[in-house]
């Protein structure tokens, strides 16, 4: 059987909010090491890669590797039924047709269970090659969400340029143009408020606002976001999830016609 219990059940609620607008359905692969999910959006422009390590759960048991195909809209509806402070357990038999979500209140006085039908999904997994990125920017996740939202008003693309001086976000369109520059933090008391840049070479790439805004739905999961960029390679936007894992989004660039 499979059982994964997470005292901080709100993490599951936040994960579903972070993927449900981008993906309609996805396979959750469960094994000894933990739970992973990899899926592309319908347009095959972006990819979500989620990793939750087994040692990050309060209880984790997986007798046999299993793949559970789920409609994420349905899963999101179920997780909305969990309280923010609830303990969440996901349970399934070997070769399951259904998965059960159990929500327990902190004081143990309320317990609810929701059973959901699984789907048979024939999704191909993509190999994500290891790469050394030319630029890696770490910045407050809320700031990144704000910039993506603000610049989306100007056009459907955002140019992200990174150099030793800092990182610049630009957009232009019918109403005009916008630039937001962030310098590397010189002195930060709180690590989560810092902007840090690791750069091998300066880069400048154009990305679709629509997808960046989908990615920022993960903002409640993490104080910081990491943007990794390289020539001839998709952007990686990564949010750490407590001490249990991370969610990564990959986005293909836009190029000059």
């Amino acid at each position: 059987m499979f059982e994964a219990r997470l005292a901080k059940g709100a993490i599951f609620k936040k994960i579903l909010e972070a993927v449900k607008d981008l993906l309609t359905e996805a396979s959750w692969d469960c094994g000894d090491m933990g739970i992973t999910l990899q899926a592309m959006d319908n347009a095959h422009v972006s990819l979500v890669s989620l990793n939750l390590r087994s040692d990050g759960f309060d209880k984790y048991r997986c007798d046999r590797n299993l793949t559970m195909g789920m409609n994420l809209g349905s899963m999101s509806k179920i997780l909305k039924c969990a309280g923010n402070d609830d303990i969440v357990t996901i349970r399934a038999q070997d070769n399951p047709d259904t998965v059960t979500f159990v929500f327990e209140s902190e004081n143990g006085e309320k317990q609810s269970d929701y059973e959901m039908k699984l789907m048979s999904l024939d999704l191909e997994h993509l190999q994500i090659p290891e790469t050394e990125y030319a630029c890696v920017v770490k910045m407050p996740a809320g700031e990144f969400a704000r910039i993506c939202r603000d610049l989306s008003q100007f056009g459907d693309s955002i140019v992200i340029s990174c150099s030793k001086q800092g990182v610049k976000f630009s957009a232009s369109g019918d109403i005009g143009s916008a630039n937001v520059k962030l310098a590397q933090s010189s002195n930060v008391d709180k690590e989560e408020e810092a902007v840090t840049i690791e750069m091998q070479e300066p880069v400048s790439f154009t990305y679709a606002c629509r997808y960046l805004n989908f990615f920022t739905k993960a903002t409640p999961l993490s104080a910081q976001v990491k943007l990794s960029m390289s020539p001839e390679y998709p952007l990686m936007v990564e949010y750490a999830i407590d001490d249990i894992g991370q969610i990564r989004y990959f986005l293909a660039p836009k190029i000059e016609d």
């Binding site: 095959h44 422009v45 993509l126 998709p234 986005l251 293909a252």
Partner: peptide
């Protein structure tokens, strides 16, 4: 500008 597909960079396992 045109949007590249992710499958141009990442390939099936």
């Amino acid at each position: 500008m045109s949007q590249k597909s992710l499958t141009e960079f990442f390939h099936p396992r």
